[in-house]
Amino acid sequence: MTTIPIDDLNDPRLAVYRSLKATNTTRDLNHFIVEGERLVDRLIASRYPTDSVLLTDRHLDRLQTTVPEDVPLYVVPFEKVHDLVGFPFHRGALACGRRLPAPSWRELWGTASGTLRFVVCPQISNPENLGSIARLCDAFDVDGILAGPSCPDPLSRRVLRVSMGSALRLPVVVADDLLSMAADMENTLGVEFFAAVAGEATPFEEVSLPPRLGLVLGDEDRGVDPAWVARCRRSITIPMPGRASSLNVSTAAAILIYRFASRAEPPPRTQASIGLGGT
């Protein structure tokens, strides 16, 4: 492995790693940054090309063997990396990935057979919430996330960090007109959309799962937009007997995704299974 020591922070090869906190908006760039050993490994293992890896000298011996031979490996002094990225940084590893053309939903699922599960995020605004939702979807085998244009960049540093790299594996389709795309998916794939709302609606435990489901989550302040409620086949809610009237969207997502990610209906509860007729 050939390493490239760099002591001068003005070296142009380090430009993509400079002032990351001030340049977190990466949607319009042709690259993105991941931070930390695990995310560097997951970027290398993903479909996205790795343009370069940056390690501090304190982490070089332990991490350099994980970097492919054809990827430039830059090494900077540990005491300088904080000035480079613009905040205290102790994870020891960064990498620059290259964006690829985003596939359409037709390319991803147009010929799919069997059940499909989607989570729909028309207006999530907090990158950490989107990162948490991506990690949940990855954990519970959701087929993909459908996102509106106002959602955070799925490949932004914060989304990738919170999702622990799940956004590198899980398809996230961003559409300028997500309502129209949902209508096309309903007509073409038979996807039924359920709106997750607070208040009067069918408790989520009581609904039957359609073979193809899109779970629509609302934004952090106003919930699901009325246009989406009208678009959805039905509205469902999480019963809350306590005094709080709503949950954080990522917390609600965890409850609902765990239920709706199931690929089959649970068996009917019999008297024996609920302890009402057994011996």
Results as ranks from 00 to 15, higher is better:
Pro154Arg: 02
Ser150His: 12
Leu178Pro: 02
Leu160Gln: 01
Leu170Met: 08
Asp177Met: 03
Leu155Val: 06
Arg158Phe: 10
Val174Thr: 15
Leu160Met: 06
Val172Lys: 10
Pro171Lys: 02
Asp176His: 12
Ala167Val: 04
Arg161Lys: 13
Ser156Phe: 07
Met164Thr: 12
Arg157Cys: 03
Val162Lys: 12
Arg158Cys: 07
Gly165Cys: 04
Cys151Asn: 08
Arg169Thr: 10
Ser180Pro: 07
Val172Leu: 11
Pro154Asn: 08
Arg158Ala: 06
Ser163Leu: 03
Val162Ala: 04
Ser150Tyr: 12
Leu179Asp: 11
Arg169Cys: 08
Ala175Gly: 08
Met181Ser: 14
Asp153Ser: 10
Ser166Gln: 02
Gly165Arg: 07
Asp153Ile: 05
Pro171Cys: 04
Pro154Phe: 02
Asp153Gly: 11
Ser150Gly: 09
Ala175Ile: 01
Gly165Glu: 00
Met164Lys: 03
Pro154Asp: 13
Val174Asp: 13
Pro152Trp: 07
Arg158Asp: 05
Leu178Ala: 04
Ser163Ala: 09
Arg161Val: 01
Leu170Lys: 00
Val173Glu: 13
Ser156Cys: 13
Met164Phe: 13
Arg158Val: 07
Ser156Thr: 07
Arg157Asp: 01
Leu155Gln: 09
Leu160Arg: 08
Arg157Lys: 14
Ala167Leu: 07
Ser150Asp: 11
